[in-house]
Amino acid sequence: MSQPVTLITGTRKGIGRYLAEHFVARDHQVIGCSRSPTDWDTPGYQHFELDVCDEIAVRSMFSAIRKSHGRLDNLINNAGIASMNHSLLTPLKTVERILEVNLVGTFLFCREAAKLMQRARHGRIVNFTTVAVPLKLEGEAAYVASKAGVKSLTDVLAREYASSGITVNSIGPTPIDTDLIRAVPKQKIDELVARQAIKRLGRCEDVANVIDFYLREESDFITGQHLFLGGL
């Protein structure tokens, strides 16, 4: 089989960057995107600078992918933002931005990817929800709502895209030591970890392992599933 073409959002840092390097090492042609340029580069990786909710920019990136690769095998919707705050102290602008990046951005990428994938009657989409959804985490109302939305979106798209040979699943990571949780007080993170069956922070490797599983050829009978790390 020729090199899989894999698109990952939010690759400038954190889990996204890790995944980009992980799949380049697995001989995928990796395309990534983020709002600002990366300070890293590696052969086999192509970067687009865009906001995941900018429909025109996103569509033009997909058009470029179609022209250069002719197909897309895998989409990993990693890009996401969070804001830790009591709902009474959360500005509406923050809520809108979180919903836009996490939910609307994921929708847009799923839609455009499925258009490309359905031509080949094959594709894998992996979305990012979070353990904060089943934990009903206080102080993250907008973030949790957006990620619950991603979970429901995954359920419905799994059904809509099944006849096109596309699977849609999600992963729900625990806190991982990235910028996303750096602003959260350590005590909060410790409390969160204490609610997991396996009480440690997650690692990027844990996320990559689940995604590897979803992307496998043999996983073509697995769709609409949500895998939470750490034993939630």
Binding site: R59, S60, S63, R66, K115, Q118, R119, S164
Partner: peptide
């Protein structure tokens, strides 16, 4: 309805490829 969806997507792509506008 599913075939219609596939047709719309194909037409979008062909217009861009063959007529040069999105």
């Amino acid at each position: 309805s599913m075939a219609l969806v596939s047709l719309i997507v194909a037409v979008e792509q062909m217009i861009e490829e063959q007529l040069g506008f999105a």
